[in-house]
Amino acid sequence: MKARNRTIQLVILAVIALIGLFTIVSNLSAGPAKYPQVGDKAPDFALAGLDGATHKLSELKGKTVILNFWGTYCEPCKREMPALQRQYDKWKAQGVEYVGSNIGENAITVRGFLDQYKLTLPVWLDQDQAVRKQYGVSEYPTTFFIAPDGRIAKKQVGEMNDAFIESALAELVKK
């Protein structure tokens, strides 16, 4: 009888302690949504590419990734595209991948734009803008440079030029 009482007491206290732990942990992590910052692991996502297949960011693990949020209606995005194309062609052989996450546009609109400007950059379509929200992007273009280990090495809000992209990639590929 005594031993059973003790067990029941122990079980009740253990359940209470567990619930307590859960409460405190879930409340502390519930705070305002945290967007990925430099040094964080780049959150994985899956999007359909212009080629029709579904792509995952995690499939590019081990490579340096330029994750570029853009739209054809965004003037500075359009301006930096040729530089991105040149740098992508130059660094591709050394394990650099480009992911152009298009913000909510139509496949035809995007394809038409790429044809018009003679670009061959691989573009993924963020139809619901879910990835844009996941990464907390509110200004276009925004570019994340992701190191081969999957961590965000650099975040750039605004237009980039050849020199900027070159130096960012040189630092990552060297490592």
């Binding site: 209606y73 003037e75 359009k78 139509n106 035809i108 609109t109 038409g112 734009f113 044809d115 018009q116």
Partner: peptide, 15 residues
Amino acid sequence: VKGFYPDFGLDDKGL
């Protein structure tokens, strides 16, 4: 369909 512009306009180069 080769191109689709939801909100058509011309840029500063006339494109």
